[in-house]
Lab assay of single mutants.
Amino acid sequence: HAATELTPEQAAALKPYDRIVITGRFNAIGDAVSAVSRRADEEGAASFYVVDTSEFGNSGNWRVVADVYKA
């Protein structure tokens, strides 16, 4: 099962156990969220919340930071 994305309210009520950072070329924010979901799932997380997204220069590469939560 894939890790689910939390709302800001849900994330605020929970304590993350880790923070992950992924970088890559994403065509849309949805693609980045899917990549975070896969990584969170690999780490055994039940859910995640994207904290920050930023573009690296003009290369089209993105850096996505997310907190991950157990259950």
Rank of each mutant, 00 (worst) to 15 (best):
G30E: 14
D52R: 07
I29F: 11
F56A: 08
F56Y: 13
N61T: 13
G60R: 05
I22Q: 00
A32F: 06
H1G: 13
V50G: 01
A2I: 11
E43N: 08
S37F: 05
G44R: 04
A12D: 06
K70L: 11
V65P: 00
Q10W: 06
E42Y: 10
A66M: 07
A3W: 04
S37K: 15
I29W: 14
R39D: 01
N61C: 15
A12N: 11
P8Y: 14
V51H: 03
S34W: 09
V51A: 03
E9L: 09
G24H: 02
V65S: 04
T4R: 14
Q10V: 07
V50W: 05
W62S: 02
A28F: 09
E9H: 08
A40W: 03
S34L: 15
V51Y: 04
A66P: 00
K70M: 11
D41H: 15
A35I: 07
I22S: 00
L6G: 04
N27D: 11
A46V: 12
V33C: 08
E5N: 07
D52Q: 13
F56V: 13
N58W: 08
K15L: 10
A32E: 01
A66T: 01
A28T: 15
A35T: 04
F48D: 00
V36H: 01
A71Q: 13
E55R: 10
S59C: 08
W62G: 01
I29Q: 08
G30H: 13
A11K: 04
Y17W: 06
Y69I: 02
V50N: 00
D67E: 08
V51N: 02
S37C: 09
E5W: 08
V33L: 14
G24F: 10
A12C: 11
V50D: 00
K70D: 07
T7Y: 04
A45P: 02
A28Y: 09
P16T: 03
R38H: 08
P8N: 08
R39E: 04
L14N: 08
R38V: 09
V50I: 15
A13C: 14
A40G: 03
G44Q: 05
L6K: 01
V33S: 04
G30D: 12
A28D: 15
R19T: 06
D31V: 06
Y69A: 02
G24L: 06
V68H: 00
V21R: 02
A13D: 09
H1L: 07
A46D: 14
G60S: 05
K15N: 07
T7G: 06
G30A: 14
E5L: 12
Y17P: 06
F56P: 07
R63Q: 09
E9N: 08
S37Q: 15
V68M: 13
G30R: 12
D31Q: 07
T53Q: 08
E43F: 14
A45T: 02
R19M: 04
E43G: 08
P16S: 05
T53L: 15
Y49N: 03
Y49P: 01
A2T: 13
V68G: 00
T53K: 09
W62T: 04
E5M: 13
W62R: 02
V64P: 00
W62P: 00
T53G: 06
P16L: 02
F48N: 00
S54K: 13
K15W: 08
V21A: 05
D41K: 15
A35V: 06
P16E: 01
A35H: 06
R25S: 10
D67N: 10
T7F: 07
A40T: 04
V33F: 10
P16H: 03
Q10S: 05
S37R: 15
G60D: 06
P8H: 13
T23Q: 09
E55H: 10
A11C: 07
T53E: 05
T7W: 03
A13E: 12
A2P: 11
G30F: 10
A45S: 03
E9G: 08
S47V: 04
Y69L: 01
V36W: 00
A13W: 10
A46F: 11
V33P: 01
A40E: 04
E55L: 10
L14G: 06
V68T: 03
V33M: 13
D52N: 11
E43S: 11
V68W: 04
S54V: 14
A45G: 05
S47N: 07
G44V: 02
F48L: 01
F48I: 01
V50S: 00
S59Q: 10
A12G: 08
G30V: 12
